[in-house]
């Protein structure tokens, strides 16, 4: 039976998804073994039960927090994809400062804003947490793929191993890469 595969994008730049697309025609190999049932560009339905979830980005807000908890429940294998998911990376660079300072820098003091200093506060918007967390600080992560972004080869290797019921080992496969 074909496996169910989903990808999701939390606090990240979508670069890891771009890299995923860079596996090019090898997507056909993946498609033979799995149905991609959910992905940021597909639709907005709730995250379904899946065999493999590729999660890009770190946990930066209440919304991400709830989402990753939900994903953890739904996914048999949770893959932290990319440096942001693994070690907060660039998204974590705001952790050196208090959230208020970060907001002020972006919405009040930035040369490009209108000078009114309005901070977004609509009820529908996510609420930023004071501290950006990597995935393993919130849930148990099964497979860790660092890299900013991980190369297409690495992503394909990880996917292919998982789809064939093997645990990928980046260290032995010499595919470890940060940054």
């Amino acid at each position: 039976m074909k496996k169910k595969l989903a990808t999701v994008w939390l606090g990240g730049c979508s670069g890891c998804h771009m890299s995923l697309l860079d596996i090019d025609e090898r997507i056909l190999e993946v498609a033979k073994l799995a149905d991609i049932v959910k992905c940021p560009i597909v639709d907005g339905k709730p995250f379904p039960e899946v065999d493999i979830a590729l999660v890009e980005g770190s946990v930066t807000s209440d919304e991400h927090y709830e989402e990753i908890l939900h994903i953890r429940k739904q996914a048999k294998v949770l893959v932290a994809l990319g440096d942001c998911a693994v070690m907060t990376n660039i998204t974590g660079m705001r952790n050196y400062f208090p959230l208020q300072e970060v907001m002020a820098a972006a919405y009040t003091h930035s040369p490009s804003n209108d000078g009114e200093g309005m901070w977004p506060n609509h009820a529908a918007l996510l609420k930023l947490h004071g501290k950006v967390l990597p995935l393993q600080s919130v849930v148990t992560v099964d497979v860790v793929v660092p890299g900013c972004p991980p190369s297409a080869d690495t992503i394909f290797y990880v996917l292919y191993e998982l789809l064939n019921d093997r645990m990928p080992d980046l260290s032995t496969a010499q595919k470890l890469k940060y940054g």
């Binding site: 927090y65 947490h129 393993q136 919130v138």
Partner: peptide
């Protein structure tokens, strides 16, 4: 901790 959105 999860309930309070804290780091594990």
């Amino acid at each position: 901790l999860i309930h309070q959105h804290l780091e594990l």
